[in-house]
């Protein structure tokens, strides 16, 4: 009798816990999930997949765009990340998730032009059809997903912001992406795996 009661109490507690911890919104990847590969068009017209990067140890995937002031504020820092980590095995792959029909300035031509002006050193892909960003669970630009390659695939190791000061690169005190990639290069897990930042909503047709 006592035992069954205990079981019931335990069950109730588990149920209650589940009710409080379950997330009602935001499907998409969490840290620890394996990310699916994609095949998206780059600004040079070629298709790009994660599987193309045979020697990569992982990826810095950044959902970003031409038109969001926060993305623009981070452009130079994104290029710096690519330069810093590409040769070490963690290239930047930028994906523009906006529907170019929903916002002016984000079609492939605009992306090509911006990449040229700013000297982007990384692939800048277009999520045409908007199939990829919902898989990841990206909600804003810029929104970073760091993937770490292992035998099973590309494991999500970090989700969030680039650093802790969008408006002034010189005033940054926490470099989330750098810290996470450095940890992975050291064969460690990043200490900070989730951060948040204000960003622009991903634009889709209503």
């Amino acid at each position: 009798m006592m035992k069954t009661l205990k079981v019931y109490v335990l069950l109730a507690a588990v149920g209650l816990l589940a009710a409080f911890t379950s997330k009602p919104t935001n499907d998409g990847y969490e840290v620890g999930n394996y990310a699916a590969d994609f095949n998206l068009k780059n600004i040079d017209g070629k298709m790009v997949s994660l599987s193309n990067f045979k020697n990569a140890k992982g990826f810095i995937i950044i959902f970003t765009c031409n038109t969001c002031p926060y993305s623009i504020a981070y452009e130079d820092r994104i290029t710096a990340l690519d330069k810093m980590y590409k040769d070490k095995g963690f290239p930047v792959i930028a994906i523009n998730p906006n529907d170019p029909k929903a916002i002016k300035g984000d079609d492939l031509k605009d992306m090509q032009q911006r990449a040229k002006e700013k000297g982007f050193t990384f692939p800048y892909l277009q999520d045409l059809g908007q199939k990829i960003y919902p898989q990841y669970g990206a909600t804003r630009t810029p929104h970073v997903y760091i993937l770490s390659k292992d035998k099973k695939g590309n494991k999500v190791a970090y989700i969030g912001a680039i650093d802790n000061n969008f408006s002034d690169a010189a005033a940054v005190t926490e470099r989330y992406v750098e810290d996470a990639v450095n940890a992975l290069l050291d064969n460690k897990l990043p200490k900070v795996t989730n951060t948040k930042a204000i960003g622009c909503t991903i634009k889709k047709l209503k």
Binding site: K23, R140, N164, N165, E174, K196, A197, G199
Partner: peptide, 20 residues
């Protein structure tokens, strides 16, 4: 307050940071 990560979750735990 530009250190977004320090306050966004305090406004609401579910907020990813997208606006509006």
């Amino acid at each position: 307050d530009t250190d977004h990560n320090s306050w966004i979750p305090k406004v609401d735990e579910s907020w990813s940071g997208a606006i509006p």
